[in-house]
């Protein structure tokens, strides 16, 4: 085992624990619900983007259709609760399992596709599902599903005004997604993925095991995103196909990871911390003009960051370049 690598991993874990601890304290000082709302969204996007990063960053399978899993999670949770009275906690797990299963079923034919063929396949599969839900009357079709308002309760995970429960749930989800990524980095799967990304020839020799590990990555990624979807349904207490399965959502999920640093441990969280408050604040404070200034700022910023920092903003913090990965050959051998 590489000494420096092990050391870095230990350091990452400590830093993450400290950051999570600090984050948990923030709501004690920031009491304004609007800012708390932004923090919830930031953590949610950090979690989603981290999960997306497992498949698309580490595994190199760029999916622009993850809104599918998000939507499945949201719909499973909301439908189980409103139609059968199943508590959202079970709903989120059920949504996660369904999504993981769907991810594997879809992964089987899709992982044979390369590059943009794969990307477009993920887009159209998500779009097809969106259209089916839009026309599925039992699931509310375009009218969507409203989660009826009841008393505040942890059991039904419903809180009329308080954002704190949602904040801590989102924080926990972000931590879990981060930890799963951290754990995967050092697993056999992590090695194979790095090997495949750095050297396509290695992929040939590893053929079957890599394919299976991709299926695993897709399942894990989809599960976590779907739990996020279930959370979103509870948080907003209303869902409709366009708002949880739209193509824009797939992009929004990928964006923090891309800007923060794709295929890195810290990139998604960093990207979310910068991007989400920025989009929320620009909309709130300059979006009311009706002149699209928020879009101009948002679009310009994406161009600027992706051109100026192609390896992601996380590289600003890197001590030395490429400190991230162990040399591939060694990794494959180990």
């Amino acid at each position: 085992m590489d000494q420096a690598f092990a050391q870095r991993r230990r350091r990452d874990l400590i830093v993450a624990a400290c950051l999570a601890g600090l984050a948990a304290l923030v709501p004690l000082f920031v009491k304004d619900v609007y800012y708390q709302n932004i923090m919830v969204l930031t953590l949610m996007y950090a979690a989603l983007s981290q999960s997306w990063n497992i498949l698309s960053g580490y595994c190199g399978q760029i999916s622009l259709g993850h809104a599918l899993y998000f939507g499945l999670g949201a719909y499973t949770t909301a439908l189980l609760y409103t139609k059968f009275g199943v508590l959202p906690w079970f709903g989120m797990v059920a949504g996660g399992l369904i999504s993981a299963l769907v991810a594997m079923v879809l992964g089987y034919p899709c992982f044979r596709l390369r590059g943009h063929y794969f990307v477009i396949a993920t887009i159209v599969i998500a779009e097809i599902t969106l259209l089916l839900f839009q026309n599925w009357d039992w699931a509310g079709a375009a009218l969507g599903i409203t989660i009826p308002m009841k008393r505040d309760s942890w059991l039904t995970f419903q809180f009329a005004r308080s954002k704190l429960p949602y904040f801590y749930f989102a924080l926990a989800l972000a931590c879990i997604a981060w930890f799963v990524t951290w754990w995967l980095e050092d697993s056999k799967w992590g090695y194979w993925w790095r090997a495949v990304k750095d050297n396509p020839d290695a992929a040939e020799s590893l053929g079957v095991v890599v394919f299976n590990s991709k299926m695993g990555a897709a399942a894990v990624s989809a599960f976590l995103v779907a739990v996020g979807g279930g959370f979103y349904a509870q948080f907003v207490s209303y869902i409709d196909p366009e708002s949880v399965m739209g193509f824009q959502f797939s992009l929004l999920m990928a964006l923090p990871a891309v800007l923060g640093g794709i295929g890195t441990l810290w990139g998604p969280a960093l990207g979310a911390v910068i991007l989400i408050p920025l989009t929320e604040l620009t909309r709130s404070y300059i979006g009311g003009s009706g002149r699209g200034v928020d879009l101009i700022v948002y679009g310009g910023l994406i161009i600027a960051i992706s051109l100026a920092r192609p390896q992601g903003l996380v590289s600003l913090f890197a001590r030395k370049p490429k400190a991230d990965a162990r040399p591939v050959r060694e990794a494959v051998a180990s």
């Binding site: 760029i62 794709i262 699209g292 879009l295 910023l301």
Partner: peptide, 19 residues
Amino acid sequence: NTGMVQIFSTFGLAVLMRG
């Protein structure tokens, strides 16, 4: 990340142009 950079820089351009 050439692939991602070009996807997202042109996506950013799309948002900018719409704005």
